[in-house]
């Protein structure tokens, strides 16, 4: 418990729900909608983003005192896109199917505001250790939302989870039908909207 209360613990745990990057800070919304039709690509995407955010936070924090303020954005861009290119190559080599499914969205981690936003808001003013914790925390916060939305969409939309059937046959026999809307774009918008509603209602007191 003392770790959670300490400064390091706060940096790590706060982004999980209280200042969740997607729901409260509105960062990185694009990809959280697009890759959540099934759980598997969502998981891969979360892990890639977690790694990229943490690495970019650490690198930027290490060189924060020598980046000239005027060209800092372009410096971040170069660091982040190099890391994303690395992530993309790794995915293509080891998880080709999923990387095809994610299509352009791996590349779009570059313009994912979480990476950029945390670099600008946190990494430039903190030590590498804190920046790493912040990166992990925000990456996990993003993963929680992504996996929750993906789970809901896959179960409701196609009755499966990670490609396995979870909705029993008996239900289909009784007249249950998969909700086709969940697979399509509007389903994602509605789910995220509802998630934000729930989290705002339940965490109102902690702000």
């Amino acid at each position: 418990m003392s770790f959670v209360k300490s400064k390091e613990g706060q940096v790590l745990t706060k982004p999980l729900i209280a200042v969740n990057p997607v729901m409260i800070q509105t960062l990185g919304v694009c990809s959280s909608l697009a890759v959540t039709v099934q759980l598997k690509p969502a998981l891969v995407m979360s892990i890639s983003l977690l790694v990229v955010t943490t690495a970019s936070n650490v690198i930027i924090s290490m060189i924060r005192n020598i980046i000239p303020a005027k060209i800092r954005i372009i410096t971040y861009m170069v660091i982040i896109s190099t890391l994303v290119a690395l992530a993309d190559q790794v995915l293509k080599a080891y998880l080709f199917e999923v990387s095809k499914q994610l299509s352009v969205f791996v590349g779009l981690i570059i313009t994912n505001c979480i990476v950029m936003g945390r670099a600008e808001a946190f990494a430039t003013t903190n030590t590498p250790k804190m920046a790493a914790l912040d990166g992990i925390g925000n990456g996990l916060g993003y993963s929680i939302v992504l996996c929750a939305v993906a789970t809901a969409r896959e179960i409701l939309g196609s009755g499966k989870l990670m490609g396995f059937k979870v909705v029993p046959e008996a239900l289909y026999d009784a007249g249950y039908v998969n909700n086709g809307l969940m697979v399509l774009a509007p389903g994602a918008f509605f789910l995220i909207g509802i998630f934000i509603w729930l989290s705002k209602t339940f965490y109102k007191g902690e702000k």
């Binding site: 509105t26 509007p186 389903g187 994602a188 918008f189 509605f190 909207g193 509802i194 934000i196 209602t201």
Partner: peptide
């Protein structure tokens, strides 16, 4: 609880539909 971001998402969902 829906004010701000939440309702924007629901509106966007309806537009997408």
């Amino acid at each position: 609880g829906l004010r701000g971001l939440g309702i924007t998402f629901l509106t966007t969902g309806l537009m997408a539909m």
